[in-house]
Amino acid sequence: MARTALLHLLRSECKHLSSRSFHSGYHLSTLVTRSHSPKATSSFYSPIHLAAAQRRWASQNSAATDDSRISIGPRRGAEGVEDEKDSRVVYYGPISSTIKKVKLLSLSTCCLSVSLGPVITFMTSPGMNVILKGAVASSVIFLSATTTAALHWFVSPYIHKLKWQPGSDSFEVEMLTWLATYTPQTIKFADIRPPETQRPFVTFKANGKFYFVDAEHCQNKALLARLTPQKSTQESAFKNL
Rank of each mutant, 00 (worst) to 15 (best):
V32I: 10
S42F: 01
H160N: 14
H160A: 05
T98C: 01
G134D: 06
T30E: 13
A53D: 14
Q54C: 11
L143Q: 07
G134E: 04
H49E: 11
T41G: 15
V136Y: 06
P94K: 03
A63H: 10
I48V: 14
S62N: 07
L28A: 10
S68I: 15
G93C: 03
P118N: 05
K163N: 07
S113M: 15
P126V: 00
Y92F: 15
A150H: 08
A63R: 12
P74T: 06
T124S: 11
Y92W: 15
D66V: 00
G77L: 07
G117L: 03
V81R: 13
S115H: 04
M128P: 00
L162Q: 01
S29R: 13
H152V: 06
Q60V: 03
S35H: 12
T65R: 09
T148M: 11
V102T: 07
A40Q: 09
F142N: 02
R75C: 00
S125M: 11
Y45V: 03
G73Q: 04
S87N: 10
A58R: 14
V140E: 07
R55D: 13
F44Q: 05
A53C: 04
A135I: 03
A137P: 04
A53L: 14
R56F: 02
T41R: 15
Q54G: 06
A137G: 04
K100A: 15
R88Q: 11
I99V: 15
M123S: 12
S37C: 13
A137W: 06
A64I: 08
P74G: 02
A40P: 00
I72A: 10
A149I: 02
S115N: 04
S24F: 09
T146M: 13
D67Q: 12
G80Q: 08
S106W: 01
S71Q: 13
C111F: 13
K163D: 06
T98M: 08
S138E: 06
S125V: 01
G117W: 07
W153I: 00
S156I: 00
G77E: 07
S113W: 00
P126T: 00
S125Q: 11
K101A: 10
K133W: 06
